[in-house]
């Protein structure tokens, strides 16, 4: 670890270049900030210091950088952004490590596949909508006390648990070459409701993304979740379904939780193949 290196090796300042944007549809611009070096910083603490500092490297007073964060321990999925060109969680992006790769500066950009709301804050509603599309839930009858669920073998739990750790951070889709940004502009005469409907329609026919495919496989492997397995597979062969996957396998490479997304995708590939053939013969 750099933190253990002799003090002489430590830089005095950290240069942080941030891609900012004042609102949707506006032109992005860059600002440079200079932060005093401290050991064991992460990108979150850098952004906190920028907020407290309130000025750029040349002393210009600027509003704090807007970004999203939550737990700061990589389980909530809030703080995704592009750091030095790679999408990841900013809480687990340790400055000492980043400086090892590039001592000159740290570059922060918003995620590339979602509309920017402001600075590093993006609109990720589409991610969650995809979970609705694949019906990522167990269709229980009620929330009354009906006794325990079915017994499950440890092997099944061990297969499901990693998939269930998906925190909808969006890294997989941001790195996916088949997942494209959808940014609609609101029309003048459009109501909130109409605009939302139009957005959801556009999302619905575009690629659902690896995270949603993986969630579909998670619930298809649950004793009760299985009961609507066919509906989930139908969603996966609908427009924007699994066929849009291009097997670049970036999803699994950038997933901060190391979820076996490509295994889920291949499993979904097999399931949809069999499902389609069966459906065709049973028609």
């Amino acid at each position: 670890m750099i933190a253990l290196d002799p003090a002489a090796n430590r830089p005095q300042f950290i240069n942080v270049r941030v891609k900012r944007q004042d609102g949707p549809g506006q032109e992005p611009y860059w600002q440079l900030f200079k932060i005093d070096y401290e050991p064991e910083l992460n990108v979150i603490s850098i952004l906190q210091r920028i907020a407290a500092l309130g000025q750029t490297s040349d002393g210009k007073k600027v509003p704090p950088v807007v970004w999203d964060c939550g737990c700061l321990e990589e389980v909530c999925g809030s703080c995704t952004m592009q750091i030095n060109g790679r999408v990841r969680q900013s809480c687990s992006a340790l400055v000492d490590q980043l400086l090892k790769d590039n001592a000159d500066e740290i570059v922060l950009e918003p995620m590339s596949k979602f509309p920017v709301l402001r600075d590093l804050l993006v609109d990720r509603r589409r991610l969650f909508k995809a979970l609705e599309k694949v019906k990522a839930w167990v269709p229980v009858d009620s929330y009354y006390n009906m006794g325990p669920g079915e017994r499950q073998l440890r092997a099944a739990q061990e297969q499901n648990y990693p998939l269930s750790q998906c925190m909808s951070c969006g890294c997989c889709v941001d790195a996916c070459p088949q997942y494209n940004k959808i940014e609609l502009e609101r029309k003048k005469d459009e109501t909130d409701e109409e605009f939302r409907k139009r957005e959801e329609k556009a999302w619905d026919t575009a690629f659902v993304g690896p995270h949603a495919i993986s969630q579909a496989m998670l619930f298809n492997n649950h004793p009760t979740g299985k009961s609507i397995a066919g509906e989930r597979l139908d969603a996966l062969i609908a427009p924007g379904g699994i066929q849009a996957c291009g097997n670049a396998q970036n999803c699994v490479a950038v997933c901060p939780k190391e979820i076996p997304l490509t295994t889920s995708i291949a499993r979904a590939g097999r399931a949809t193949t069999i499902h389609t053939i069966k459906k065709w013969f049973e028609k």
């Binding site: 839930w137 229980v140 325990p148 073998l153 440890r154 649950h222």
Partner: peptide
């Protein structure tokens, strides 16, 4: 006990014993 049973039904991947109990 009822709360845990409900959460089990909702699909929470609780760790299992070798025999498949929570």
């Amino acid at each position: 006990p009822k709360v845990i049973e409900l959460m089990d039904r909702l699909g929470v991947p609780f760790n299992r014993t070798g025999e498949g109990f929570l």
